[in-house]
Amino acid sequence: MAGVKQKIRESYGDRIFLVCIYVFLAIILAVTLYPLIFIVSSSFSSPSAVSGGRVWLWPVEATLIGYKSALQNSQIVTGYANSIFYTAFGTLISVALTTMIAYPLSRKTFFGRSGLMMFIVFTMLFSGGLIPTYLVVKAVGLIDTRWALLLPNAIWVWQVIIARTFFSTSIPDELAEASEMDGCSDLRFIWNVVLSLSKPILAVLALMYAVGQWNAYFDALIYLKTNDLFPLQLFLRSILIQNANSGGLNAGQIADTQQLLALMKYSIIVVSSLPVLIVYPFVQRYFVQGMLIGSVKG
């Protein structure tokens, strides 16, 4: 063990162990990073280099042709516009509804709050299933409308739990009492005091909902039939996974279509994941925060 001097030194074994940890983490880093770099590099390479398998790490014969054809694709453009719409409005609706349900549940004076909370959590643990949900959406008349992506999944139970925990721990009842004494109405209290104190949690909710909405495809798959309403992910599915013929290629390119399509896939992957991946490093701490609040009391 460590030689006992003034300071306890690391033993020989410990140093080897630490080196092993660094090697282990470096391997994990490489394994995670390599596919990401490979995709980005491929997206900047020439069609023949991608199809010929000549890309290993860095772009080969760098060009922007993949991006050009991706952005000329009408489906990508429509999908992008739709996804921006769904993400913006969906996030707005979700955050508003979640706050509206979580705040009352966080107040001790709210009648029947534990019963209501149990009811909400129960829906997280047990659901009727796909078909009953589908039939409800159908009965309400939302099938094949934009609302189908905005309303049925507007509230995530997990987010309600996070928001409720935040409200009940960071907005003390004394604050509400004090405002009441000063003649502040409940609504004004929520608007002026609660919301301005809750900016961090609102950011967490908005980010999580926005990423969820941007990446979702399942609701669109079952509820939508009209192409014009499809979000980006659904178009991606047909282009990337089902290899559906995509519009936007001109006649001169037909000989190279096969090669170009292979390249375009990489470019499309980058283009579609870009908004989230660019923003993410800057907002990472909000996500971490959100997870932590949620895990304090599950």
């Binding site: 995670t32 990401l36 990446n215 495809y217 996974i241 994941s273 991946l277």
Partner: peptide, 11 residues
């Protein structure tokens, strides 16, 4: 290591 979490299922 956190980044891949944000890639959508389709992608």
């Amino acid at each position: 290591t956190y980044a891949p979490y944000f890639i959508s299922t389709v992608v």
